[in-house]
Design a protein around this nucleic acid. Structure first.
Lengths: 214, 214
DNA sequence: TAGCCGCGGATTGCATCCAATCACAAGGTT
DNA sequence: AACCTTGTGATTGGATGCAATCCGCGGCTA
């Protein structure tokens, strides 16, 4: 389907690379370089860049070029405040439709999360954990929006995580425990509150590390 | 600047036309038609369509075409629920920076809003009123997001408004009164709650009119 | 008569070429 | 010495032509 379309293929690949950290924020992207890398012309590359712009991953400036999006501290605070309000909603919509399979999968991921020492694995598992709690909400609009919020903050979550000692992850683990518990009990209100606190605490921690930003 | 770039110019113009209701939801858009209309080639049109896709105004399907975005009732409910959570945040960030000029402007718009009989004017003034209350939040991310939410629901606000008798607008006027009052008092908490209720009530009203949707 | 297959027209996707624009550096002026 | 100006190279934006894909219609078959 759309994966056969060159522009979409390029967009998907580039997205992976960006999220993996291949290009740090502020890196300039030249159309021709990408075109060569994918053995295509600049046309589909330009479309791919527009797609990634919509995802918030790159920033385009007319007649000038494309850069990997860069967030200031205040941008990041803003994004987290949005997440604080929006993700509990998504959880509320999702929770009633989460099955036992979802929940046992969540338990598995939670255990892996507690045992890993690798930052990269932590980031990936944490993302999987939260996005899985939203899986029940079959939504055409909120889902992409939330994913976008995660994507744009990815670099900063990574940078911030690297500054933490392993002890620093403990609150997150406890909150995951509480969250999973509330989910199992199908206690929407509690789950929403815990998630709100989880994101809010992370924001406040992040604000203590302005050195992550320019 | 970017308005001189053909693709941006086309995107901006098309956006206006769509919001004005020139193309109802579900209308197919052929690249060549738009290209002819703007006396340009298909290249900038394609970019413009990608931009509008990011705005949520059109939906692209690979190898098939572009359509004016269409919302189902449940999509619309979802959007309103997002607005219920996100717009109060934006108001909270904006309120402390609203000046007396903002407030007197808001009063003017409110009066016009109460006196107009035209649906089209009502839509435009209502939009101006609310977006003006957000003007104090100089945000790079929330602002565009909120505008996008307004854009994608525009058609349905219009369709729904047309079904209402003039009496039907009364609650909205009262809520605007309360909201403006709370803003004048710089009472963030109250303003947030009133706004939440305003959007929520509208959503519930909308749910009573499923005939607006397909 | 209903359903399936295949073909032609219309439309989108991609490559290539040329034009327009910008950033940067060198030179001149005050 | 700092600032403005101008020209050149690099890069993006747009036009055109061709290839690929999809949709609808007609005819065939069960």
């Amino acid at each position: 389907m759309s994966d056969l379309v060159t522009s979409h293929r390029i967009a998907a690949q580039l997205k992976k690379q960006i999220l993996k950290g291949k290009y740090p924020p502020g890196t300039r992207i030249r159309q021709e370089d990408i075109a060569d890398e994918f053995k295509a012309s600049r046309s589909p590359v330009r479309e791919a860049l527009r797609i990634l712009e919509a995802d918030g991953l790159v920033t385009l400036i007319a007649n000038t070029g494309a850069w990997i999006s860069e967030l200031s501290l205040s941008d990041c605070e803003e994004l987290y405040q949005i997440r604080e309000r929006v993700e509990p909603l998504m959880l509320k919509l999702s929770l009633p439709h989460l099955t036992d399979e979802h929940i046992s999968m969540l338990m598995t991921i939670k255990k892996q999360l507690e045992n890993t020492k690798s930052i990269e694995d932590f980031l990936e598992l944490d993302r999987q954990f939260h996005l899985l709690t939203y899986e029940g909400a079959n939504t055409m609009l909120l889902g992409p929006m939330v994913e976008r919020l995660w994507n744009t903050t990815q670099h900063y979550r990574r940078a911030y995580s690297k500054m933490l000692e392993t002890e620093g992850f403990k609150p997150a683990h406890l909150e995951h425990e509480l969250l999973l518990n509330a989910i199992t009990r199908k206690d929407t209100e509690d789950a929403e509150r815990i998630l709100y606190g989880h994101i809010r605490r992370t924001r406040l921690e992040l604000e203590k590390h302005p050195e992550v930003f320019i």
